[in-house]
Amino acid sequence: MDTITHTLFGVGIYQSVNKEQMSKKEKYALLLTSIGASQIPDIDVISQLWDTTGQYQMWHRGITHSVFLAPIWALLFYIINRYIFKIKGIQSFFIALLAVFIHNTSDVFNAWGTGYLEPFSTVRLTFGTIPIVDLVIWFIFLLAFVATKIYPKVKTHLLFRIGWILIVLHIALQSIQGSILYKYYQEDYQDLALSASFIPWHFTIVGKNGDTVDIINDSLLSNAEFVERITSSNNVDLDLLFAENPAAATLYQWSPFVVVVEDNNRIGIYDPRFYRNGESFLGEYLEK
């Protein structure tokens, strides 16, 4: 998910806790913990500062997003609460654990995927059923906030807990529909990937057979729209590309499958899941 959504998750966690018996210092600590832990897995972006071998694609959403690292992040925020805010008790550990778990797990549902099981598996888990920027989630949080103003007698934490229930139902409904479409197209293609549209309940199906890749927009409530058939130059030797542009080798390993491009000007590969208006924003090339 994007940074705004992860921040909203942190605010949503903070607002879902009953703070009636909390001191001002405890509330500050809770706010720091819920928002900080909701963002901490994305600390991997700093790896760009020293990446000289083109490995950023693997480092981003890699080990820092592992479900097995979540307790370590939670322990960090427990230590901050215990020794900086001087707050006793273990609640901060579980709040941080929940925040990190939501961050890592929500990222699995969009097309980018995560190293959810690292270091025990290098597989990038991705369902592709939720867009990276999900406006429905934003809208639900907005509704929860507005509800606190319209119904001031209803406790804030109860309204935000209802919001969380709606978010879970939204993700479940999206994922069920995506799963049905995936299974429908699975028999037609050797390789298949799913990418959720910004429009709820709509998906892009990316299917590959041999050297052809089909892009299809579809939903359970409308007819399929065939967007484009792309030809991949699979017979091209990519060794020079990988040697001159190590990020290309990383992308080749990271993506479920790629389209190979060769023309008079360049050779390269791109991830067709992010194909829009004739090109993909996720590609690596070598000029001839």
Score class of each variant (00 low, 15 high):
G268E: 10
I95D: 02
D42G: 02
F9V: 15
D271M: 07
S66T: 14
I199N: 09
D134K: 11
A249F: 10
G278T: 08
T126S: 15
S47E: 04
V259Y: 00
Q174E: 15
L142A: 15
V67R: 07
L8V: 01
R61K: 10
I216W: 01
H65Y: 10
R229G: 06
D51E: 01
I267S: 03
I267G: 08
F109T: 15
K27D: 00
L220H: 02
P131Q: 05
G36F: 08
G12L: 02
F101E: 09
Q57T: 13
K155E: 13
Q15W: 06
I180Y: 13
L238G: 13
S121D: 13
V227A: 09
I165T: 13
F281D: 10
S197T: 05
P41I: 10
D134Y: 05
S121Y: 09
L143I: 14
F203R: 08
F101W: 08
H202R: 11
I72R: 00
F109M: 13
W59A: 11
G163S: 05
R276Y: 01
I80F: 07
K153R: 12
F109I: 11
S179W: 12
N209E: 02
S280M: 01
D2T: 09
A247N: 09
M22Y: 10
E244I: 07
R124N: 06
K86P: 06
A111N: 06
L282F: 05
I199P: 05
G36M: 07
V259Q: 00
W112H: 12
K288V: 09
Q190C: 03
W59N: 11
I150R: 13
W50I: 09
E20W: 02
D51A: 03
W73D: 06
G10I: 06
Q91V: 01
L238E: 08
R82G: 03
D237E: 15
I13P: 01
E228L: 04
A96Y: 05
D239W: 12
L49H: 03
N104G: 15
D107Y: 10
G278W: 08
M1D: 03
R161A: 04
T204R: 09
F77N: 02
I102N: 07
F9C: 14
I171A: 14
L117V: 11
I132R: 10
A247C: 05
Q253S: 11
Y270R: 01
Q177A: 12
P256L: 11
I199A: 10
V136A: 11
I230E: 01
N264I: 06
D42S: 07
R82T: 06
A99Q: 01
Q186K: 15
N235Y: 07
A37R: 10
L194V: 03
S34P: 09
P152Y: 05
